[in-house]
Write a protein that binds this DNA or RNA. Structure first.
Lengths: 209, 209
DNA sequence: ATTGTTAATGACTATTCGGTCATTAAACTT
DNA sequence: AAGTTTAATGACCGAATAGTCATTAACAAT
């Protein structure tokens, strides 16, 4: 009885609508537990349509991971290249930009997704590692080196300190897409990041501010 | 032709052997992508045997999560209760104990597993939150309060600082079970933890050591 | 040895879901 | 208006797997 809704032909918009729907469901349920029909229906198309744009479920997963974060990494590299003030100020700038571009939208789910599926998709994990993680670490590491050279920071082990600085930021994103549902009062992200940076200021800097 | 190996009847040992096998595979592949037959075969039994001890795959998951970490939380509570020295020394003791009991064995995979599956098993996530996370946070939070009261630490927002302190430790465990396979040279865990604590000493304490 | 109890097995079932393809219809061409 | 192209559909297929159960055999009791 019910007339089926009219088909629309929108070849350009479909891929990003599909990856966006897939990201949301992969982050919520994980790769294996997400059904292609649910992705398609969330994107407003049928399962067959999905296969017009992606070869397989795994190809869709790769597209999801490769889509969102790369531009933001490049933007942060540009910020670092054009920075004038102190090294700690640069760390603050990089974090602020990361948060505004990743922390507050759907891409914030990617770290959880990548962590959960890295061992099932080593090839995609490698891509993410080389093109996101390595570059972000290099950026923070260079900033630490610069701050050490100028006497702003104490003597630090660069690579390890970099890891320790990044960890709470990643953990915040992961938390918000996993255990956060158990808390009644969710984490206050701005306060969390501000606390992290305050600890770092005292922890990294040679002279107290 | 090949004689099947003799069956052994070991009712006592089976459950823990099954949860141990399940933990390893759940951490590696995720819950949905792990096959019950693989768990059974890793535990040296058939799939039917698994159902003698666990009602369903989900019941097995619950058992895996509830098994390992609880005793360690209790041990750390005892350590805190009997502690004499400075508050920072207590933080170091708690971390050292956590690392020796969790960080270096199979249970180190539980945070990754729990984070990946929390939204698929909200009931289990709630159990973990109430019985592990909340108690560990309370322990760290009390230590911070004590250190603030005695003048050892600066003025701190307790709950948020607690989150920021715990995050790098969790992230280390998660990393080792996910993206670590992409690195050629793996993270030096003792150095990482030592760096974290060194940053914290400077970041938390009022007087420099 | 014989018998009873129950731990262990693995063939089997029912269902789910990734992937295919013949058909339909939207939009464009002439 | 008729014809052409191709985006979109959804019924269908085959493989994979969670869960069952009749059968087997290890061990204990006698």
């Amino acid at each position: 009885m019910s007339a089926s809704p009219p088909r629309k032909r929108r070849k350009e918009a479909r891929p990003s609508e599909l990856t966006s729907a897939a990201l949301a469901l992969f982050v919520e349920k994980g790769f294996a537990a997400t059904r292609l029909e649910d992705i398609a229906s969330r994107a407003g198309v049928s399962k067959g349509t999905l296969y017009l744009y992606f070869e397989s479920k795994e190809a869709l997963f790769k597209a999801v991971i490769q889509e969102g974060i790369l531009p933001v990494v490049a933007e942060n590299e540009a910020i670092a290249a054009g920075h004038a003030g102190s090294s700690f100020e640069l760390l603050e700038k990089l974090l602020a930009h990361w948060w505004s571009r990743i922390g507050q939208n759907d891409f914030s789910g990617i770290p959880k997704l990548m962590v959960a599926e890295a061992r099932n998709f080593p090839e995609v994990a490698r891509f993410y590692f080389e093109n996101v993680i390595r570059r972000v670490k290099a950026l923070v590491g260079k900033t630490l080196e610069h701050g050490m050279a100028s006497g702003e920071f104490r003597d630090l082990n660069i690579t390890t300190t970099t890891d320790v600085i990044i960890a709470p930021i990643l953990m915040l994103l992961i938390w918000r897409h996993s255990m956060a549902c158990c808390q009644n009062d969710e984490v206050d992200a701005p306060l969390y990041l501000q606390t992290h940076m305050a600890l770092l200021r005292q922890g990294l800097c040679r002279t107290q501010v």
